[in-house]
Every structure is written in structure tokens, then in C-alpha cells.
Amino acid sequence: MVRFFRRIVAWVLKVLVELALLTGVLMFLANYAFHHWIPIRQRVQASVEAKVALHHIHPLSYTAIPAAYREAVIATEDRRFSWDPGFDPVGIVRSFIVDVEKDGYVEGGSTITQQLVDNTILNKKKTITRKVKQLAYAVGIYDTFSKEDTLAMYANVIYFGHGAYGLYNAAETYFGQTPTQCNAGELAMLAGIPNEPSLYDPFRNLSLARQRQQIVIDNMVDDGQITQSEAEQIRAMPIRLVHNKGQ
């Protein structure tokens, strides 16, 4: 029994030490970000523009992104997006607990802003050092861009599989339509693809893509974005893939 309690105490102390170290480093880097916001802003904008040019992305403004897609992404990827400071403290604590339990870096706990950083500035190598840098950049983005601009940049650079980067390109690739021409069911499917593009590619595995779509719709209900009745209407909407318009 004594050994058991010692292990519990050691585990708790390890978690607290890691969180304290992370908080200290993050505060230092965040302070740097706050006082050097112009380089961060320029770097993010340059990275987004470079990716748009490289992948021939058709960029969309925030207002050109359908509300149904915005709601689906926020409900699924980052429910606290409207007020979080670029990172989710709750998610970080949860991910660190899992990391400690697994004795390594396992959980991500990334917000929409952090995913934007991953898809523009940093590589995706899973290390604690890169995670701290990601957090610092996310805080810098929070301090220098509006939430609307952040979400628009995310939607414009995220990878949707099948060679499609950005929401506009993805809508054309899978449905042969612009995002505003897609129905809410198709937009919910698009919102779920970036989690695992090769797995949820509807051309390759429509069944799994539909399962993921159902999760996104459930998330929208849980987050209060839509009612259960509206969810059922969205589930019944046709998925009009370009190679099977009659579906």
C-alpha cells in the first residue's frame, strides 16, 4: 500500500513539474511573441502565401466560407476557439497527463490556431520542443490576427487528401462545386476529412468518410450549433461525388 501511494505521489509530482516547466517556457516565448508581433505576422502571412502558390490554392475570405463549414470545424476541432488564446489549457493538461502515463509524447491537443502553425511554419515532428514552439507561435497569432482571419487561413491551407489543399480546392475535387454550392452534409464531410485525409478520402472509402461525417454532425449537436432535428436533415442530404452525381 505504501509503495502504491509513493507511485501516485511521484506521478502527480512528475505531472506538476512538467506543467510548471511548460508554463515557464511558454510564458517566456509568449512574451517574446507579444513584443515581436510584426515578424510573426509577416512569417505567417508569407508561409500562407507560399503554400497557396505552391499548391494552386483558391483562397477564401472568412465571409466566403459557408457558415455550416465554420460551425462544423469549430465543433469538431476546437470548441473553445472563439475565446481560447491560441491554445487550449484544458487540452494541454489532458495531453500532458497522457504523455506522462505513456512515458513519451503521444497526445497533441492542438487547437485550430496550432494546426495553422503546423501547416505553415513548423514541421509535424512530435517532440516537446516543437510543441512549445507551436504554442508560442499560436499565442503570437492570437495576439496579431482576428479569429476570423485565423479560421480563414486554416481553411485555406489545411490538407483534405487527394491532392487538395484548402476548402475551395477540396469542394471542387470531391464534389465539382464551390463551397457555397455544397450542401450542409457535404460541408460536414469536408470538415471531417483533415483529421486523417487518406483514411476519410470519400473517393477511396466513402463508408468511413460517412462515419466521420456522422461524428462531425454529432459534435455540432453537442456544441449547440444545430438541433437534433437539423442534424437528421443534414444526415439525409445527398453526397454528390463528382464520379457519382446520382448518389
Rank of each mutant, 00 (worst) to 15 (best):
A68M: 12
Y69C: 08
Y69G: 09
Y69D: 11
Y69R: 11
R70S: 15
R70A: 15
E71W: 07
A72W: 09
A72Q: 09
A72I: 09
I74T: 15
I74P: 11
I74N: 11
T76Y: 10
T76R: 09
T76E: 08
E77V: 05
R79G: 11
R79D: 05
R79Q: 10
R80K: 14
R80T: 11
F81N: 07
F81Y: 15
F81T: 04
S82G: 02
S82M: 11
W83L: 13
W83V: 14
W83N: 08
D84A: 02
P85Y: 08
P85C: 11
P85A: 03
G86H: 04
F87L: 06
F87G: 02
F87P: 06
D88F: 04
D88N: 15
D88I: 00
P89H: 01
P89V: 01
P89M: 05
V90T: 06
V90M: 02
V90W: 05
G91R: 05
I92M: 00
V93D: 01
V93A: 07
R94Q: 13
S95K: 03
S95D: 07
S95M: 14
S95V: 08
F96H: 03
F96R: 05
I97V: 09
I97M: 07
I97K: 13
V98T: 03
V98A: 01
V98Y: 04
V98P: 00
V98L: 05
D99E: 11
D99G: 04
D99T: 00
D99H: 04
V100Y: 04
V100G: 08
E101A: 03
E101D: 05
E101F: 07
E101C: 06
K102M: 07
K102I: 05
K102P: 04
D103E: 13
D103V: 10
D103L: 07
G104C: 08
G104A: 07
G104E: 10
Y105T: 10
Y105H: 14
Y105K: 15
Y105P: 07
V106Q: 08
V106W: 14
V106F: 13
E107V: 00
E107P: 02
G108N: 03
G108K: 09
G109M: 07
G109L: 03
G109Y: 01
S110F: 03
S110G: 06
T111Q: 03
T111K: 01
T111E: 00
I112N: 12
I112W: 11
I112Y: 02
T113Q: 01
T113G: 00
T113V: 00
T113S: 03
T113M: 01
Q115M: 12
Q115H: 11
L116P: 03
V117C: 06
V117M: 06
V117S: 00
D118F: 04
N119Q: 13
N119S: 09
N119I: 12
N119G: 13
T120C: 14
T120K: 15
I121D: 12
L122C: 06
N123I: 14
K124Y: 09
K125P: 04
K125V: 13
K125I: 11
K126E: 11
K126G: 11
K126F: 10
